[in-house]
């Protein structure tokens, strides 16, 4: 399995990269490459040109920006896991990223890459949706900010334009009493999940005031289950009722390791698992 021919361009700066991308619609951005390289090696993808943005300085910054935690697109998963600002402001991030593949992949794979790739089985797109994050993209007409819920359109499909590149993600800082809790069910540690859930919770275990549920590895993009969340808020955890609600709210798509029926069951069970992680 050797990649087909493509040309390689090391971008000097963002504008350089945007310019090439705008003019060649068969070019692709190379950031960490941890999803792109397997596709190239197996000739599942044959772009004309790879635009390597990994050496552009400043794109891996992690900082507090107003009322948000900003994570630069080129910050690797390892960078993010080891970052104190992230740890202090978004403690769930470490546990979530620990489930993303394996250490050597996390050393190269980037935050922005995972967000931009839009794999429905990946954790970060669901996290972005669950936290109401803004995705900052840069293009020929300058920067624009897209709310994560509007960013994902379908299977590996996003609203990003041909000339645009993800430059960072802004996660709103957590309010007092707000918590992000997460769980997933995998066949093997580090695999893509059979189903996963990121919950954005306001309140405590016995007194949940607000709840947002976003599932991953269930459909063609992060699946928001607002109706089910409301039902859970009103009635508490009732397996049959929540399962019924999820079945109407999410179009579960089976894969090799779990049928749609299995995913529906796991999604329902994950609500219980996630809520049990809340403090009393």
């Amino acid at each position: 399995m050797k990649a087909a021919h493509f040309s390689y361009h090391e971008a000097l700066n963002l504008q350089d990269a945007i310019k090439i991308k705008a003019h060649d619609d068969e070019s692709v951005i190379l950031a960490g490459g941890q999803s792109l390289l397997p596709a190239l090696n197996m000739r599942l993808s044959s772009p004309t040109c790879l635009i390597d943005i990994s050496k552009i300085s400043g794109l891996n910054e992690i900082k507090i920006d107003g009322q948000t935690l900003f994570i630069g697109a080129l910050a690797t998963h390892s960078d993010v896991m080891n970052n104190k600002t992230v740890k202090n402001n978004m403690p769930c991030m470490f546990d979530i990223l620990k489930m993303v593949a394996h250490p050597a992949i996390r050393n190269k794979g980037t935050h922005g890459g995972s967000i931009a790739y839009g794999d429905p089985a990946a954790e970060l797109p669901a996290l972005a949706v669950a936290t109401n994050a803004e995705i900052i993209v840069s293009g020929q007409n300058g920067d624009r900010s897209i709310n994560a819920k509007d960013f994902y359109l379908g299977l590996f499909e996003t609203t990003i334009n041909q000339d645009e590149i993800v430059v960072g993600i802004k996660y709103p800082l957590l309010k007092k009493g707000q918590k992000i809790v997460f769980d997933e069910v995998c066949r093997r540690h580090g695999d893509y999940a059979m189903a996963g859930l990121i919950a954005n919770v306001m309140g405590s275990k016995n007194d949940i005031k607000d709840l947002k549920l976003v599932f991953f590895a269930t459909g063609d993009k992060p699946d928001v289950a607002d109706k089910t969340a409301r039902l859970c808020l009103e009635n508490g955890y009732d397996y049959d009722k929540l399962k019924n609600s999820l079945s109407t709210e999410i179009d579960f798509a089976g894969d090799l390791n779990s049928s749609s029926e299995m995913k529906l069951h796991l999604a329902t069970v994950l609500i219980k698992k996630v809520l049990s992680k809340l403090e009393i």
Partner: peptide, 24 residues
């Protein structure tokens, strides 16, 4: 080795064919 009913192997990669790894 998962096959569909036309005889196509569905999981012929190391990501999809699950070998035992250390954690489990």
């Amino acid at each position: 080795c998962v096959y569909d009913n036309q005889g196509n192997m569905q999981n012929a990669t190391m990501a999809d064919y699950l070998v035992p790894m250390a954690y489990e």
